[in-house]
Nucleic acid binder design. Structure first.
Length: 218
DNA sequence: CTGGGGATGGGGCCC
DNA sequence: GGGGCCCCATCCCCA
């Protein structure tokens, strides 16, 4: 969507890798004369952009702009995972890689939350309903890495939790635990209104919602 | 050793 | 064509 043919022409060089402008000092090549001109100042040391608040001067206007934030204290770049703010987008990205990358890995689980930063992130995610963990296969999103890890087994067919008494196997430990009660006949969940016993807590709450709906609403 | 601050410089888009 | 602006990685520095 280039509004000008000249811009399209320059953009086209991105695909053709055409670089018509060569630095006469280091022979490095560029797609536009502007890029070459900007590059040339790395050789000449020319710094036309003077900070009005301190003796620093810069080769580029955007460098000066970024520098000015060291005076204003402005931090426009926010980490979307922990809310920490930064003066430069690079610093923010570096932070995300350093701090959050391992938290995105399948090995990282809520059971391992033990650092204050992780706890902060955890609490933020829970309260904002943020879902930073995306399944590469079906795009479903999760709030926690361990939930994604469990979910991924749906695609891989991996069922690490094998019942020792029958061929059934499960993607998560809770499902196996629940299944085992079908063998033992254990009914650990009891309705506090009528005493009826259940193998499963969700079955019990469904029972309460349907059978005892009137009583509980009173 | 870790992690943020700040500078540098290349890529690309837009006017 | 020139230049502003934003993206980003990388570097050095420092607590």
């Amino acid at each position: 969507l280039f509004t000008r043919s000249a811009d399209l022409k320059v953009h086209h060089r991105v695909h053709t890798n055409e670089r018509p402008f060569e630095c006469h000092i280091c022979s490095k090549r560029f797609t536009s004369s502007g890029d070459l001109k900007r590059h040339t100042r790395t050789h000449t040391g020319e710094r036309p952009y003077q900070c009005q608040l301190c003796p620093s001067a810069f080769a580029r206007s955007d460098d000066l702009k970024s520098h000015l934030r060291t005076h204003t204290g402005e931090t426009p770049f926010e980490c979307n995972l922990c809310g920490k703010q930064f003066t430069q987008s690079s610093s923010m990205l570096k932070h995300k890689r350093r701090i959050h990358d391992h938290q995105m890995s399948p090995q990282f689980c809520k059971k391992q939350f033990k650092w204050i930063t992780s706890l902060k992130m955890h609490s933020r995610i829970i309260h904002t309903n943020e879902r930073p963990f995306k399944c590469d296969i079906c795009s479903k999103r999760f709030s926690q890495a361990c939930d994604l890890k469990t979910h991924t087994r749906i695609h891989t067919g991996d069922r690490p939790y094998q019942c020792q008494q029958c061929p059934s196997a499960f993607v998560e430990s809770g499902a196996l635990k629940k299944h085992l009660r079908s063998h033992t006949g254990e009914t650990p969940f009891q309705c506090d209104l009528c005493g009826k016993q259940f193998t499963d807590s969700s079955n019990m709450s469904r029972h309460k919602k349907t059978i005892h709906a009137q009583e509980t609403s009173l």
